[in-house]
Design a binder for these strands. Structure first.
Length: 432
RNA sequence: GGCCUCGUCGUCUAGCCCGGUCAGGACACAUGGUUCUCAGCCAUGGAACACGGGUUCGAAUCCCGUCGAGGCUACCA
């Protein structure tokens, strides 16, 4: 059997981190089996669906590198004919019926602020209410509900306005989806959908319900826990790092750092965990740092929009960066920065000794001998062997920061002329 | 409330199916080393089987119960 799975986001919001993770697991499963992964936009909720959300979702999936196999995007609003056909068929077969609302019920809808309508199409279930409606979840094993607990299955508002549970079933059937891999929050919908498959005399696909991504308070991850919109991660995180991180929420890969192809090779749905996983920003940051550190100089420079920098500048940044947005803290590698003259003093050194150290450094720069050996020698000969008296003011003169990369590394990046200019500026700051 | 699901360090988790490990790893945290500072890197450390019964020579692992947590409970998806 050829595997075919889908991600079915509804464009009623931006690409949520949870949806992205579900998409990733579907992608991993499809790629593992050499099957198909398709994207279907579930836009049956006309009031809340927006084109901008659809764009955000598509852009997010592309950014994450989760490529799909349907050339054209499926949209439920473009498939209304299909739903109508099945709806009519169920109605004709007596498997569904128009449920008329009484005046009182309509009044209540109005009171609840919902648009009142006089009837909807409901699935007819005249089976034994005590019977078990069950399915074998690949991740959780048997999940069973008694029919009487399922409740009314409303299929559509009218022939042209299908509702979620009905539209998913028709689509999954029509598109020959073999495995429905989705969030745990859909478990209770599954029973309703099973009833619909049954009425259609169709074989349901296999189901696998993923554990949820949780916030620190262990409730379903939402905006109050932090960013849920994938787009919000694009300025700070590498897509490969985010993917690697999300893949481990509910699954274990060994080693932890692994590219998506290798993850796909190993992936096994049955090994997905049952319990929810807290989204740990600190671990994401660490993972991101791992990927940043491994970047090739050219790629990194292009990413931060500084292609003109020498390659030597790259490790100075990549070894220290957790989030790409923080790259601004390395401005000193391409631009002289402002700072308070007091930070030039190492420990309790005064201006005179600091100026003397800077002048010595300038001499070295002038003669092209700004090296570790030379600096160490000066420390010993002129500053009682206190390397800080030399290294610290030089480094601050070059970076304008209390904390930065080493002075020799910076000098190597900015060149002798800039070194001397920055030293001169530091000295003048101290003399004024 | 009802229905469904889940429960190993603070977090992600290995181990559970097929009982016997000092319950392992990673992140985070702490300490030390490298060092002019920061980061990085290296080393070390503290840190968990939700609870109670049962089965067994032996239980994180098997069984029962309790407690706890989450999800769903729309004419949203």
């Amino acid at each position: 059997m050829d595997v075919k799975v889908r991600i079915a986001p509804s464009p009623t919001g931006n690409l949520h981190i949870g949806t992205a993770r579900t998409a990733l697991f579907n992608w991993l499963f499809a790629r593992h089996h050499g099957g198909q992964f398709i994207v279907r936009i579930e836009d049956t909720d006309l009031e809340r669906s927006k084109k901008e959300y659809e764009t955000n979702i598509i852009d997010g999936l592309k950014w994450l590198g989760l490529d799909w196999d349907n050339e054209q995007l499926y949209r439920q609003t473009e498939r209304l004919d299909i739903y109508r056909k099945y709806l009519q068929q169920l109605l004709d077969d007596g498997k569904a019926f128009w449920r008329e609302y009484t005046a009182e019920e309509q009044d209540e809808m109005k009171r609840e602020g919902r648009p009142a309508r006089d009837r909807v199409i409901v699935l007819k279930d005249d089976g034994d209410p005590e019977r078990a409606v069950a399915f074998d979840d690949i991740i959780r094993g048997t999940v069973s509900v008694q029919a009487k607990h399922i409740g009314q299955v409303v299929l559509a508002k009218d022939l042209d306005t299908p509702l979620y549970n009905f539209a998913v079933v028709i689509d999954d059937l029509d598109m020959a989806i073999t495995h429905v891999i989705r969030g745990e929050d859909h478990i209770s919908n599954t029973a309703k959908q099973l009833l619909i498959y049954n009425a259609l005399k169709a074989m349901p696909p296999k189901f696998a319900h993923l554990p949820l991504i949780l916030g620190v308070d262990r409730s379903k991850m939402s905006k109050r826990h932090g960013a849920t919109n994938i787009a919000d991660y694009q300025t700070d995180y590498l897509p490969d790092a985010l993917v690697n991180f999300m893949a481990q929420l509910g699954y274990t890969y060994e080693p932890e750092i692994m590219n998506r192809q290798e993850m796909a090779r190993q992936f096994d749905l049955e090994r997905v965990h049952k319990s929810g996983a807290v989204f740990d920003q600190a671990k994401l940051n660490w993972m991101n740092a791992q990927y940043i550190k491994r970047m090739k100089p050219a790629a990194f420079k292009a990413l931060i929009g500084k292609p003109e920098l020498p390659d030597a500048a790259v490790p100075l940044m990549t070894e220290r960066l957790e989030r790409l947005g923080d790259v601004a803290q390395f401005v000193y590698l391409w631009k002289e920065s402002e700072y308070e003259s007091e930070i030039l003093f190492w420990k309790d050194n005064d201006a005179a000794i600091t100026i003397r150290a800077l002048q010595a450094c300038d001499e070295l720069a002038k003669s092209g001998d700004l090296t570790k050996d030379a600096l160490d020698r000066i420390s010993v000969e002129q500053f009682d062997g206190k390397k800080g008296s030399v290294y610290w003011p030089l480094r601050v003169a070059l970076s304008g920061e209390r904390n930065s990369a080493g002075p020799l590394d910076i000098a190597n990046v900015i060149g002798a002329d800039s070194v001397r200019a920055r030293i001169a500026k530091a000295i003048s700051k101290l003399q004024s």
